[in-house]
């Protein structure tokens, strides 16, 4: 653990300034839509930076020369046909997938270097999965409290009050003592978001968070994500929800065949796409 804590207070490789993560963490307060702070402009250094990133699954070239910078406070939505590499790109950010070449820097850590310990970086990144992956043997509350207590060493009472606050924020405080199997899909996914937020992360990753949900539950999850975006959370979202992309994204990336084919604001993307493949994709889904 000590080695993590040491590397945790480290120097940013770009600007040579000590990294003080605690100051930058978004607050956990429930922010109403109209009182949300203005979106931070792109400033300073990117918090996620892909440089010539390549990845293969065996012979399959799944990521081809990915170059992308994501800045603090940005909401980036990645869309594209299935098998285009969008989930893989997302999963590289917290090294659930390793890359074979290129440089990937996240929160000042060069995680493309296998010698860099990923654990402290992961603590700063919340992740929400398509199939929720809540811990079935733990209650909702315990699901949310586990990482803060074991990773951040927060005392139980404090972890519990954070968890309850987050459950209020995602709209299901009454389910605190329930087990995941007793919740609907939408409720489970909202608990999963609360679990990710409990570490007060700097980045939230969403891997098709609504794809496994029944249609009537999609909205409740998207609403939570929208509220989060308004608070200024840095979010990278892989989704097929074009309405969400249009409304919430600062930037949209379109991927196909392992490459980023087109990037731009939602207006650019949905109104005036340039690339033929983007147009074809949008014709199919819209």
């Amino acid at each position: 653990m000590t080695s993590h804590q040491q590397s945790y207070i480290s120097v940013c490789p770009h600007c040579r300034q000590p990294i003080t993560p605690s100051d930058e963490r978004p607050s956990l307060e429930v922010v109403q839509a109209d009182s949300a702070p203005a979106k931070p402009q792109r400033n300073g250094e990117p918090i996620i930076s892909f440089r010539q990133v390549n990845k293969w699954f065996g012979k399959l070239h799944v990521l081809k020369d990915i170059n992308e910078d994501i800045y603090p406070g940005e909401v980036v939505v990645i869309i594209g046909p299935s098998g285009s590499g969008k989930s893989t790109m997302l999963r590289c950010i917290n090294r659930l997938e390793t890359i074979q070449s290129g440089r990937l820097v996240v929160d000042g850590y060069e995680i493309s270097n296998p010698k860099v310990n990923i654990t402290p970086v992961r603590a700063e990144i919340g992740m929400v999965f398509q199939h929720f992956h809540l811990y079935p043997h733990k209650t909702v509350l315990e699901n949310i409290m586990l990482a803060p207590m074991k990773v951040r060493k927060i005392p139980q009472t404090e972890a519990k009050s954070i968890a309850l606050e987050l459950l209020k924020k995602v709209g299901i405080p009454e389910k605190a003592e329930a087990y995941p199997a007793q919740l609907s899909g939408g409720q489970q996914q909202r608990v999963a978001i609360a679990r990710g937020l409990a570490m007060r992360p700097k980045i939230m990753l969403f891997d098709e968070p609504t794809s496994a949900l029944d249609p009537e539950m999609i909205k409740e999850v998207l609403d939570v994500m929208k509220a989060l975006a308004r608070e200024g959370m840095t979010m990278v979202v892989v989704t097929h929800e074009m309405g969400f992309a249009r409304e919430v994204a600062d930037r949209v990336l379109f991927m196909d065949g392992g490459s980023i084919i087109e990037r731009g604001t939602p207006e650019h993307f949905f109104v005036n796409p340039v690339e033929e493949r983007t147009k074809a994709f949008l014709r199919q889904i819209l």
């Binding site: 654990t119 992740m127 811990y135 990773v151 951040r152």
Partner: peptide
């Protein structure tokens, strides 16, 4: 997915084994 969820929340391999 259980392992991925635990690891991505910042738990170490051994914590993931022990708690999840």
């Amino acid at each position: 997915g259980q392992v991925e969820a635990a690891l991505s929340s910042g738990l170490t391999y051994w914590q993931t084994m022990r708690y999840i």
